[in-house]
Simulated scan of single mutants.
Amino acid sequence: MNTRTRVLIAVSGTLALAAAAVLYVGAAGARNQGAASAGTSDAVTLDGGRLLFRSTADADRGHVSSVSAADPGGARAVSTVSCSRVHAAGGTAICLRPETGLTTYQLAVLDRRLAVTQEIPLVGVPNRARVSADGQRLAWTVFVTGDSYNGGRFSTRAGTLDLTTGDVEGTLEDFAVTVDGKPYQAADVNFWGVTFTRQPGRFYATMSTGSHRYLVEGDSKARTVRTVRDNVECPSLSPDETRIAYKSAIDGDPAKGWRVSVLDLAGGTVTPLAETRSVDDQSAWLDDRTVAYALPRTQGHSDVWAVPADGTGTPRLLIPEAESPAALP
């Protein structure tokens, strides 16, 4: 079976998934105040000098929006496009969203003007989304249910789309896995949080198995992944490709929350960042010096914060009523 036929993510427990969808996307009921910025417009593009995000404000919940990178607390532009998760780079955006009137989801590829150029069905609740720096490769993560090994709890599926070839990988679980230099197979392998390198076909992601959550390096052409480091989740490669921002479970236990840190790929040095609150997000690099991430404020409302990538300074509120940030250089 060639890669073009791997469009559909493995079908899982529909009823449980529909219920989860209601919890994830349908949390738009009773909300608190949604004051966000000094004004709005509808001119949202992927042109440079902006920060793209998903609004969590009551007035425009879920809509793809943007602000000036020079004045992120100022007036925001709000589009008519709604997404559960969004990311953009290189003139391309990925939008994970519910299909109209259904309890299923789809991946929409958006151009520089946010027009849909391609749609791919997804079976799973949207969780993570990424676009490569050149805008040619897209990745997503969804939650699914029904895997026999986990007693009906949620699992993840991570997939990729290469716009240069049209090839789709519905799940990375088909890749050959190497753990600590040895071939590895297990029923409970899960992947999430893909981040791309500039080298075609190469990426980093999280792989979980047993009690481990590994940083893995992958090769789409060879269809292989290899472990790099333990206790690394939701990696995000820096623009200069020398570091990875990620969340690590405190004391190795996700129940205790996550600490956002930066890994130096060459030397292996880990730098915990000044943000000490639990960050359950895939961070985004604003530039080579600054990392951004979303933190929930109240149910259904989040803010995007930023912190220096070298461990100094203090966290600062970057964009109120926002999540899924992406810098548009």
Rank of each mutant, 00 (worst) to 15 (best):
R6F: 09
I9G: 11
L15Y: 12
A18G: 14
G26V: 09
G26C: 12
A27E: 06
A28H: 10
R31D: 03
A36M: 15
S37L: 09
G39F: 02
A43H: 11
L46M: 04
D58V: 15
A59C: 03
S66P: 05
G73P: 00
R76K: 14
A77H: 07
A77N: 09
V81Y: 01
V81C: 01
C83Q: 00
S84K: 04
A88M: 07
R97V: 06
E99S: 09
Q106G: 13
V109A: 04
T117K: 11
Q118P: 03
Q118L: 12
E119Y: 05
I120L: 15
A129N: 10
A139G: 15
F143Q: 10
N150D: 08
R157Y: 04
G159L: 00
T165Y: 12
T165K: 13
E169M: 09
E169S: 09
T171I: 06
L172E: 06
L172C: 04
D174G: 14
A186Q: 02
D188H: 04
F191P: 00
T197H: 05
T197E: 06
Q199H: 13
A205T: 12
T206C: 04
M207S: 03
G210S: 03
S211T: 15
H212L: 04
V216I: 12
E217R: 15
S236I: 09
I244L: 11
I250R: 09
P254N: 08
R259G: 02
D280V: 15
D281W: 01
W285T: 03
W285R: 05
L286Q: 05
T290A: 02
Y293I: 01
L295H: 07
T298C: 03
T298D: 10
G300Q: 03
H301W: 06
V304L: 06
A306L: 04
T314I: 12
P315A: 01
P320H: 11
P320A: 15
E323G: 03
S324A: 15
S324F: 06
